[in-house]
């Protein structure tokens, strides 16, 4: 791997709720994303994975911490120069395409705004290329979004992200609104495009098995912070954080006999609210290995084995 493309340092994003309460959606996340890799980010709903993605790309101003992309600081103010290099794909392809715009105009919006082409002919050639690269054809250019199925729309969203030739794409739950057989098409497409264009992905999803089949490394988030980060293989072979262990054991496997003989770690206890969180480990309320220390001090992300990071007081080595 050729060095970090994206460096996130102590990134936090808080929201104010009600009068004096703070919701810590992302709280002190540090990580690196290397050129050409896919970093998968998993976690339950409300754990801050989407907020992290949006803060990284500069859609939200961070409350604290920095994001550096290829050495340059990212902030909403200097969006335009980085917009050509960072793009985003959203979860719902039904609401993220303007229903009144033709596919050709949707795809060319970035191209036109940044004046990336010189002539009309070049513009339509580029649109045809984009459509072809995502498995659609030139004749789709003059249609409107409602004429396409969910899977096709997600392909259009991918083509739109590719239109400005970015290096880095943040995909926020890109397949969770699609049917199983269509999910596979979109994942394969994303992988082919990565191979062809050398893209780097931050792939956000809640489905562990989907994340596994596309990611080189996986980060697990819990209530706003990263609790474990490791190479995919290492994470699945030796999950270290008690939350990761419970998460992996909870995923239903599509194999009845394996499913029956399986031991599940059942979590009890309530999920803490991210609003006005008490000190200590965020996972303590549901953790079986909880000690006094866990209630007092928040564990830091430590490197337990080369490349394997975990934030837990109880796990010392792998």
């Amino acid at each position: 791997m050729a060095g970090a493309l994206l460096e996130v340092n102590g990134l936090s994003r808080y929201f104010t709720v009600g009068k004096r309460k703070t919701l810590k959606a992302v709280d002190g996340v540090s990580m690196r994303i290397y050129r050409g890799e896919t970093l998968g980010l998993v976690g339950e709903s409300g754990c801050g994975k989407s907020t992290l993605g949006r803060t990284v790309i500069g859609l939200y101003e961070p409350t604290a911490g920095t994001v550096r992309f290829d050495g340059m600081p990212v902030s909403p103010k200097r969006g335009s120069s980085l917009a050509l290099r960072m793009q985003m794909i959203f979860q719902d392809p039904y609401t993220s395409l303007n229903p009144r715009m033709k596919i050709s105009d949707i795809l060319a919006e970035g191209i036109d705004n940044h004046r990336l082409v010189r002539s009309k002919a070049e513009r339509s050639k580029r649109i045809a290329e984009l459509l072809e690269s995502v498995g659609l054809s030139e004749e789709h250019a003059n249609r409107y979004p409602h004429e396409f199925s969910g899977g096709q729309r997600q392909r259009i969203c991918i083509a739109r992200a590719l239109s400005v030739r970015p290096d880095f794409i943040i995909a926020d739950e890109p397949i969770s609104s699609l049917d199983v057989s269509i999910q596979a098409q979109v994942i394969n497409l994303m992988r082919d495009l990565q191979d062809e264009m050398g893209l780097t992905y931050l792939f956000i999803a809640h489905d562990m098995s989907v994340v596994r089949c596309i990611s080189n490394r996986i980060g697990v988030m819990y209530l706003g912070s990263l609790v474990e980060l490791a190479e995919s293989e290492a994470l699945f072979a030796k999950p270290t954080h008690p939350y990761t262990q419970a998460l992996l054991s909870a995923i239903p496997i599509p194999d009845p006999s394996e499913e029956r003989g399986r031991h599940r770690i059942m979590l009890s206890g309530a999920v803490r609210s991210p609003i006005d969180m008490p000190p200590g480990c965020r996972f303590a309320s549901r953790c079986q290995a909880r000690t006094k220390l866990c209630d007092e001090r928040e564990p830091e992300l430590r490197e337990l084995a080369p490349g394997h990071f975990c934030a837990c007081h109880q796990s010392n080595c792998i």
Binding site: S181, A184, I187, S209, V210, R212, C213, F236, P254
Partner: peptide, 21 residues
């Protein structure tokens, strides 16, 4: 349908997919 489901116990691999809709 069964082949296109990503398997948790299998590493990064190309998924089988049913063409069309």
């Amino acid at each position: 349908l069964l082949d296109s489901v990503p398997k948790i116990n299998r590493a990064k691999e190309r998924l089988f997919s049913i063409p069309g809709s």
